[in-house]
Design a protein around this nucleic acid. Structure first.
Lengths: 250, 250
DNA sequence: CACACTATGTTCGATGCCGTACACAGTTCA
DNA sequence: TGAACTGTGTACGGCATCGAACATAGTGTG
């Protein structure tokens, strides 16, 4: 069967009031996001923002010596290319498709114009940006203090939250690039989780068998990111942004 | 002699056009920032934003077990309390004065109103926020891949950039909290730098003797943060924000 | 089926940091 | 001057991860 695509599959777009949703929709372009594709490169000029629907994208930073680390995960809850509206035009990080799927893209200038209307689009995007900041800071802390096994759990749960199924397509090699550790470290950690009956691993296919179990092993970082994302974006129902706009309550 | 205080000592304020600068100045309140004071706590409601002039403030994250890590450093180039205008109201991190001094504060609602004018203040604050994001992501990567000695160099240089002198008042114990490592680790690293003649350490007073030397030892992370901050904010001269506003050039 | 290739599992010594313990030096204050 | 305190230096075993090398098992292809 042909998969149905719809902009509202992206939570940010879905949260927009009807007028804004209509304006944006008319200019959205459905694009496939194949595994490994770079939506933008470090320092490169961004031509579009991307709203993933079924794909998951990693914000990845690559050091001079080739070592890398994932900064944040963006799926159908978010947007890629925030520096377009933040004003910087580019960032030092890359955006790489981590799980193949689709998304919609929008021309940079069109989004800037919409943003500069200082309406719901602006407020929604800034709220999302703050959720993203939380994810980035938590990643920094987690990198410092927690073990690979816990970080793997965090990564699995964050990915799972952005997928419809409980099966991930991802080799240990790729995961190790995301977490910024050796492939063997991932093998070790994944083996632990598998022996504990939490996941099943097989040549690039990870099946999560016991999600509550994972949540017991994961460090606090996952909950912090989740809670903060929910708090910042959950009260934004489809077509209802009154509270976002009504911040000047006094 | 009595130290002269002026809002323009803060680079963000200084970069505002005359009209905006005047509006804000009328509502700024000079506040002392003593060492160790928490400008805001994790999850707490923010009442003000702060523009440091002579103080340096650390964005610090404290884990459940008490371990901590610094997320970013903010001095006279920046502002504290971005979640006020980003829309989140609070953040999970703390802001702690790392180097005593002064700063100006502004009521949350006043800043929100100013921000919602969608003028120079908005664009300037968003640009700064992106520079801050760069610093946070670079911290995450640095935590993952670089050694304590290099991270200490990065920390020293970032702090130095925000101070008028080349002397820091800071015990190794405090630095270890910032970097999220043991105090002994800092002793070790500082000893290396001292033996190399780059710094002089003495009971809470660090004197940087050879800044170029430090820049040779430091990892790439420092340069990335510096370059990106300069890029995002350098072309913003005092009272000249035409380019910030004129992003819709096409 | 044979072969190449990819993904995973295992081992080994090296290393960087941790946790702990304790010695020592500079500072403050009675 | 001596005691208490704070800040720094040093040592030792333990552990997580690294870097490298290699073994094994699925997968795809001719």
């Amino acid at each position: 069967m042909p998969t149905a695509h719809c902009p509202a599959q992206n939570h940010l777009l879905a949260a927009l009031p009807a007028a804004e949703f209509a304006r944006l929709s008319a200019n959205l372009e459905l694009v496939p996001m194949p595994l490994g594709e770079a939506l933008y490169e470090s320092g490169g000029q961004l031509q579009h923002v991307y709203f993933p629907t079924t794909a998951i994208v990693s914000l990845l930073y690559v050091l001079e010596n080739g070592a890398s680390a994932e900064i944040a995960i963006v799926g159908n809850e978010g947007i890629l290319g925030i520096s377009i509206f933040m004003g910087g035009e580019t960032t030092p990080s890359r955006a790489v498709v981590q799980s193949a799927g689709h998304g919609y893209r929008l021309g940079a200038q069109f989004l800037r114009d919409e943003f500069n209307r200082a309406g719901p689009v602006l407020h929604l995007l800034l709220r999302y940006t703050q959720a993203l900041i939380t994810q980035m800071t938590q990643t920094a802390v987690c990198n410092r203090h927690h073990m690979v096994e816990q970080q793997l759990c965090r990564w699995l749960l964050l990915s799972l939250d952005r997928l419809p199924t409980s099966t991930l397509t991802m080799t240990q090699e790729l995961i190790s690039n995301m977490l910024g550790v050796r492939r063997e470290g991932v093998t070790e950690a994944a083996g632990q989780l598998q022996r504990a009956g939490l996941i099943h691993y097989s040549r690039g296919r990870i099946e999560v068998l016991d999600r509550p179990g994972l949540e017991k092993v994961v460090c606090e970082c996952y909950a912090v990111v989740k809670r903060e994302s929910d708090r910042l974006l959950a009260d934004i129902g489809p077509g209802d942004l009154s509270h976002v706009l009504g911040t000047s309550g006094a």
